[in-house]
């Protein structure tokens, strides 16, 4: 099967046929953007130092090494827990025009709404696979808001076939992880009933 590769800038039509559970890869640019960057844009109303229209963000705080020639080397970059950005993401999508949000785990109803209204998707990169992702970064082209320290700096990465990226929220607002969680919770009760009868240690 051919790899499905998205290329930045991403257009609405690139995403409209994607559904949760589909696997894609990304070629082009992706900017790391996590807690404080979201807070600065949404709460503190500061302008982002990067243009994200049609772009991609990575919920990630990498390990970066500064080289002797002043450039930066991507050592290790994996996704962080996306749910931390849920509070801000709908407005973030609306304000920036970002099309692809890469992270880890699920996001909530606000992001679903943002993805549906503005034709964007959230995708999961396998957590902990940070050297795999680093080998897919061709170059760190810029580093903005370095005052935030290594994890929170906006690292502008040029990537080649970054992935696998598993679509977890699609442009129709379907949410893979929320669906999975509902299944897990439905199974929980009957499993616990079986355990209860065997752990009555207080007699």
């Amino acid at each position: 099967m051919n790899k499905k590769v998205l290329t930045t800038p991403i257009k609405d039509e690139d995403l409209e046929d994607l559904r949760v559970g589909d696997v894609v890869y990304l070629t082009g640019h992706i900017v790391t953007c996590r807690d404080v960057a979201h807070r600065r844009l949404i709460e503190l109303k500061r302008e982002l130092p990067v243009d994200l229209k049609g772009g991609a963000i990575f919920h990630a705080g990498p390990i970066v090494r500064k080289l002797d020639d002043g450039k930066f080397e991507m050592v290790s970059i994996g996704p962080t827990t996306s749910m931390r950005m849920e509070k801000f993401e709908r407005e973030f999508i609306e304000q920036t025009g970002v099309k692809l949000i890469v992270g880890k785990g699920g996001m909530g109803p606000l992001t679903e709404e943002g993805c549906k209204k503005h034709k964007a998707v959230h995708a999961i990169f396998p957590g902990g696979c940070a050297v795999l992702a680093a080998t897919q970064v061709e170059e760190i082209e810029r580093a903005e808001w370095q005052d935030l320290g290594m994890p929170e700096t906006l690292w502008v990465n040029r990537v080649k076939e970054l992935g696998p990226l598993i679509i977890s929220i699609d442009t129709q607002g379907n949410n893979l992880i929320e669906k999975n969680k509902a299944e897990f919770n439905a199974k929980k009760g009957p499993i616990l009933e079986k355990i209860y009868s065997q752990v009555s240690f207080i007699k």
Binding site: A60, P62, I63, V75, S76, P126, G128, C129, A130
Partner: peptide, 18 residues
């Protein structure tokens, strides 16, 4: 992907998770 990552971390001598 997890197995590939651990192999790459070992080969490149890098922290396997950022």
């Amino acid at each position: 992907s997890m197995a590939e990552n651990q192999e790459a971390a070992n080969r490149l001598d890098r922290p396997s998770c950022q």
